[in-house]
């Protein structure tokens, strides 16, 4: 479980995150949603320690990441996996070498075992046969899947995904979502996903935190989102015609039931 308490972050004089409080649960997909520029990426970077918060605490199962020593931070980081918005594969290494990289760095297994483990992970993300290609030679969706394989190869306890399906078509997005969801539930990982894709919100959002202008405005599940009485959340979620109609239909049906 990851808990955020009274988190503030400012850049020079600009306050980007204001008093964020949130809880991210084990074995669930925790979504952070919000408009572009609302501070999702900044929040995630604070959680994983790429940025230092101005104030507040980030508790990883009661270990406060901000006040850990350098050594403890590195130890905790080995329990994390992250998938970046741009996949961030090492472009001088092949797909297989990318996935093997964390193992080469931290595992003391022999080469054959490491390779087998990497190939298993590639099979899990349906990438059998692409292991000798280079990141420049595969599509964006495949790069994201390689990034997922690289993130899970050390069996992390915490998985972070920054907009895993940005720039992908709806069908591939769903494949990626289902992959992340499957891995989270099978391995009981605490997964945090940044997104503004409504398909993901409705599809896999078990615990959703809505950020608006640097404040955490709402927290709940995708089942509760239809009935949430939060104006800002409604404005954000139901901004497209289709979703607005769905919401009206939902409200009508609810009216009939009541």
């Amino acid at each position: 479980m990851i808990q955020i308490q009274h988190l503030y972050k400012s850049f020079e004089d600009r306050e980007v995150l204001k008093d964020i409080n949130a809880t991210f649960k084990d074995g669930e997909i925790n979504l952070i949603i919000g408009q572009s520029g609302s501070g999702k990426t900044v929040l995630m970077k604070n959680i994983v320690g790429l940025l230092t918060p101005t104030s507040g605490s980030i508790l990883y199962d009661d270990r406060d990441f901000v006040s850990l020593s350098k050594k403890e931070k590195i130890k905790l980081r080995r329990e994390m996996g992250m998938i970046f918005q741009s996949a961030a594969l090492f472009d001088s290494l092949s797909v297989l070498e990318n996935v093997m990289f964390p193992l080469n760095m931290f595992s003391y297994d022999c080469y054959e075992d490491r390779k087998k483990r990497a190939l298993d992970c590639l099979a899990r993300v349906n990438l059998v046969g692409a292991e000798n290609k280079f990141p420049g030679e595969i599509s964006g969706g495949m790069q994201k899947r390689v990034a997922i394989a690289r993130a899970i190869v050390l069996e992390p306890k915490y998985l972070f995904c920054d907009e895993p399906n940005s720039g992908l078509d709806p069908k591939t997005s769903i494949v990626i979502d289902e992959l992340i969801s499957g891995i989270t539930h099978e391995d009981n990982i605490t997964t945090i996903v940044n997104t503004h894709d409504m398909n993901s919100v409705m599809g896999i959002g078990e615990n959703i935190t809505f950020i608006c202008e640097g404040r955490a405005e709402w927290q709940g599940s995708n089942k509760e989102i239809m009935d949430a009485s939060n104006q800002k959340l409604d404005d954000f979620i139901f901004s497209s015609d289709i979703l607005r109609q769905a919401k009206e239909l939902h409200d009508q049906q609810k009216g009939i039931k009541v």
């Binding site: 994983v48 790429l50 590195i74 130890k75 980081r77 080995r78 994390m80 996996g81 992250m82 970046f84 918005q85 741009s86 961030a88 594969l89 090492f90 472009d91 990289f101 964390p102 760095m105 931290f106 050390l154 972070f160």
Partner: peptide
């Protein structure tokens, strides 16, 4: 280039 494509961040996150 590794910095702007977040490859260095990826290394840091791994604890490297």
């Amino acid at each position: 280039t590794m910095r702007i494509t977040q490859q260095i961040d990826a290394l840091d996150i791994m604890g490297v």
